[in-house]
Amino acid sequence: MTETELHLPPARAWVGPLLLLGGGMLIGLAPIGLRMGLDDLGPQAIAFWRYVLAIPFLFALLILIERRMPKRLNKYIVLAGTFFALDIALWHWGLTLTTVANATFIVNLGNICVGFAAWLILKEKPKPIWFVAVLVAVTGAAFLSLGGETGGKSDIRGDLLALGAAVLVSGYMLCSKMARGKLGAMDVIFWLTVVEACVAFFIVLASGENFFPATLSGFAAPAFLALAAQIGGQGLIIAGLGRTPAAVAGIVVLIQPVVAAAISWQMFDEPLSPIQGGGAALILFGIWLSQGSAREKRKSRQSKSSQKPATEPT
């Protein structure tokens, strides 16, 4: 840790969680965009074009902002991109069989699991308040998923596909966190998208779906996903992962099912019951609680800084 980092203003400690929160809200639009495009393309082709259409924009942003070519990718980006593309493939498939709230809740269990994986692999031991935040957030997510009216569109096959996606998303989050330790956010999101497009190409081939829609209007939904979910959502999450412990990040991005369920209430006739509304509130409370570990870490840094010898160079 550098001397500059030790003396950052307290407000800067919120930058990472705020980036993750914004990214999670934009990713919450992903299932909405998917359902908008299913009349023109299959779920795997939509994912493929989501990545492909985002690549030139990400490359242009890297050139304009960083004024350089992308740095060389590493093995963590290849792993993270592969995990994410397979995760989205299962999730998109599952979304055609179950409700938006169900699929989004189940796949986001992987975000919680990444906290335990980071503890074991990255030695990022979470603070005690994190376990309370996990319990609150997962309970809220369960209420959001299971508290709806009976006779809905849920299908066990879709739920099982979403469960497989949850396992993959934990690997994506962990490898992305490790990649951020080597490269900047813009390099990581660019190369992640390239890897995801390559993997998605073979997934579309295996699925037998058509690569192209019948009309140009069929590209509208993938273009929306490219801008909102891929560039905006995933980009902000990658940036936030570099500033936030993986365990805390996994809880913050649970804002996704709240956004997805709220929008699908109006668009897809999947109304929220009072139990689901309470579940959404619990998720938001769990996100707030998860910041307790970040607050403790800031206090620890400030304490160490105040104890440094006066003769130490600044």
Rank of each mutant, 00 (worst) to 15 (best):
M1L: 11
P17T: 07
L18V: 14
L18P: 06
L21V: 07
L29P: 07
P31G: 13
G42H: 01
G42S: 05
P43L: 01
R50V: 09
L53A: 01
A54K: 00
P56F: 00
F57T: 13
N74W: 04
L79G: 13
G81K: 03
T82Y: 11
G94L: 08
V100H: 00
N102L: 01
L120M: 15
W130R: 02
W130T: 07
A133P: 08
F143G: 14
S145R: 01
S145I: 01
S154H: 04
D155Y: 05
A166M: 13
C175W: 05
C175V: 00
S176M: 07
A179M: 08
L183H: 14
M186N: 12
I189H: 03
V195L: 02
C198T: 14
F201V: 09
F202Y: 15
V204W: 03
A214M: 06
A214V: 10
A220D: 01
A223Q: 02
A229L: 06
I231M: 12
G232P: 10
G232R: 04
I237V: 15
R243M: 15
I251Q: 07
I251V: 14
V253Y: 01
L254Y: 00
V258L: 12
V259A: 05
S264L: 01
S264Y: 02
F268C: 05
L272F: 07
S273K: 08
G277F: 07
G286A: 13
S290T: 03
A294P: 00
E296I: 10
S306C: 03
